[in-house]
Design a protein around this nucleic acid. Sequence first.
RNA 1: GGGCGUAUAGCUCAGUUGGCUAGAGCACUUCCUUGACAUGGAAGGGGUCACAGGUUCAAGUCCUGUUACGCCCA
Length: 886
Amino acid sequence: MSELPKHIDPKAIEEKWYAWWLQHNCFHREAADGGEPYTIVIPPPNVTGILHMGHALNNSIQDTLIRWRRMQGYNAVWVPGTDHAGIATQNVVEREIKKEGLRRQDLGREKFLERVWAWKEQYGNTIVNQLKKLGASCDWDRLRFTMDEGLSNAVKEVFIRLYDKGLIYRGTYIINWCPRCQTALSDEESEHRDVKGKLYHMRYPVKDAPGEFVTVATTRPETFLGDTAVAVNPTDERYRHLVGKTLILPVLHREIPVIADDFVAKEFGTGCVKVTPAHDPNDYQMGLRHSLPQINVMTDDGHMNENAGPYAGLERFACRKKIVDDLEAAGLLVKVEDHHHAVGHCYRCSAVVEPRLSPQWFVKMKPLAEPGIRAVKEGRIAFVPERWNKVYLEWMENIRDWCISRQIWWGHQIPIFYCDECGHQWADRGKPSVCPKCGSARVRQDEDVLDTWFSSWLWPFSVFNWPEQNEDLKFYYPTHALVTASEIIFFWVARMIMAGYEFMGDLPFREVYIHGTVRDNQGRKMSKSLGNSIDPLDIINEFSADALRFSLLMLTATGQDVYVSKEKFEVGRNFGTKIWNVARFMQLHKLEQPLEVRAISLNPDRWTADDWHIVAKIDDAAKAATECLERYRFNDYAHVLYEFLWHEFCDWYVEYAKPTLYGTDEARRREVLSIMHYVFNRALRLLHPLMPFLTEELWHGMGYGLEDETIMTAPWPKADNLTLRGMAQPYVEYVDLKHDLIRRARQLRADYEVPPGDKVDFVIKPAGPDAAAHLRADADAIALLIKAGALSIDPDFAPPRAMPSALNALGAVYMSLGGVDVEAERIKLQGQLDAVAQELERLEARLANEAFIQKAKVDVVNQARARRDELIGKREKLAAMLAGLG
RNA sequence: GGGCGUAUAGCUCAGUUGGCUAGAGCACUUCCUUGACAUGGAAGGGGUCACAGGUUCAAGUCCUGUUACGCCCA
């Protein structure tokens, strides 16, 4: 046992223990170590990422789980890694070279990729190092990157397998195009945001019918240049006569037909819809049904192309404005209305996404989804909280094909090769230099790269080097808990489930814990642009990593969003300080024969009620903590330990112990200190997953661990001694009542404004012989806690004069005071008597009700009867006390 | 437009399969620097459980509807 300094130095202990854990390889496990596996794979943060509160919450939860399972004796591995984040990372590096006046095209693919790799080497581990500050006990020997060699092999293998199976195809469809990033996006990567837009009503002249027009409504007037029809609903009487007629597209003077199609909603706008097959998914479908031409009017970077006639070269929104002006000038603009609607935005750069016809690679998802749907329906994979099951199933059952090609350079290049000689196209694991069909050397690889999520969906097995079959893969897969946020259920969770079944033939994980979003005090998402983010590293600096973790998890009700502000982290800091100080208190008390804290022997036959009580309560805490963790109830878990350590242990047990510890009965001192160490040791272990640094420091500081040991592998306390717990129960009940009675006595003092320094005499009239025996044994300690001059326990006490008093099931307490405000005392007692009478009345009514006696559970009826008897007793006593006032 | 979530103390939230007097932390009021801790201790005030119906012996909890806010999908 080493002397603890007066104040904690969180920075010092965080650095010391993290380095120690690394040095002693505490986070690493291997299949060869045997035992029961418990695996978590980290949601790989982007290499461009810096730690924010969302990461802090996500990783605190994972670390809590993995540390707990490790203590339970599992072969527990938490596999870390980072994601190459194709578009995001490319954007970062493009911005960087822009400062040198360069575009990626100026460097060329190869040179540009060198720059990205260099950037990754320099900055890519930032977030990994930040995770270490949090205390994350990842198995760093297993650190992976989605573009390292092994994972790239997995990606290639998967692509080729799906391609050969016919599940990957190339096709020209409407996709989400980001004109800023100049790449296709998947449906999930286009974020819908509500925007205040306009609905433009424009007129198209009817051919050969001067003065006759058709009015269409659109939110994107610039796409009219690509219109190849106008559609109405076939049942719409208003327009039936127009179907089959020809319209003249303004400006371009192109002739387009009026068609009838069920898809058109009669109520929307004018009921006439312009049809632009190359720029809208619904129009595209309509175009197919009616064999309409598809005219793309835009370039990759969001400007109008040669099909836009006089508008060619204009930026799309500038073009919109000009077209509106021109149509207005030509008398073809009927009106412009305000219109709220959802518009897709690029999830990486927030540019407005342009739906657009484009040749891309897709994965056919329906067949992959089937096993994933069954797995959740049959409960093999469970979401926590379970409401996410439904969200997941909804999406999976309506799944659409996945656009996986991206027109960027940073990522896994698509392993498809083309022969320019004979036109052969094939998938290849290597880098072929000649065409396998005609032998020509005019071979080139597809330019596109794969969606970033095409590598992360393999994460649970690619981190173990799949497709290589090895012991780790066999041992650690399937993994156990997946901890993530709801935002990526579709992006990632659902796809991992599909990949797991498709390539491993088994589920990737058993439980998916979905935690909430971290928000600021006003409920807004934390973001850089709002300037409302709280940097977890600032919190670690100011409070401590333990405080950050504890506070975050204490605030995390299952799956609910977490609202944080700086002050909220004080809970964790204060709790840490409290624990530190009680540890110092224990150290303060030396014994003649020093205590061997590693080999505590307890003597229950000589225990007081308080001893039984605290030992029972730590047992209960162990049980509760374990249950909370099993059910992902992190706030309850934090609360259990807070309540136990602060209130049960510090507020009561330590206070009861003081007279003994400052006294001279060496045997009692020894027993009390032994119990304290026994209890505190267990509490530290229960708290370790949540506050790893502080608990490790104290575990050593108190001498519970040898120099080469760590609390990380100390056994997780179990509540298994039922016999002892059963024996403790009567003491637990007594002590809980004693706490209450002490509170009531203190209340008497406060009511009569007795200065805290003054001693007053008290009498307790016990409710029965058992209570009397207990109270007599505890009289000295109670006297101290209520600052009594003299305290007598007198079963026959009858107040000789008016005395302030209070009552509970254990007995009545009387305070001896010179001047008593008899009237105030009468009012107080009368108030209590009224409350008792009222409750009794309600209870009697309930017990008189036949239906209640018959239908309610036996326990509930018995409880009601017991309560009634208790209240009757209480009523009598209160009446007597009232009479005693004279 | 469809789906989901939330509504409990001034604030942030717990409250499990319906069942004792609805809890915690923060904030607030009063008092206390006695020997672990003022990042502390003691005591206290504060709630028609959003609203309206219903089911039940019994509803904060279950059902229906209304309102408000938030999220996801289209």
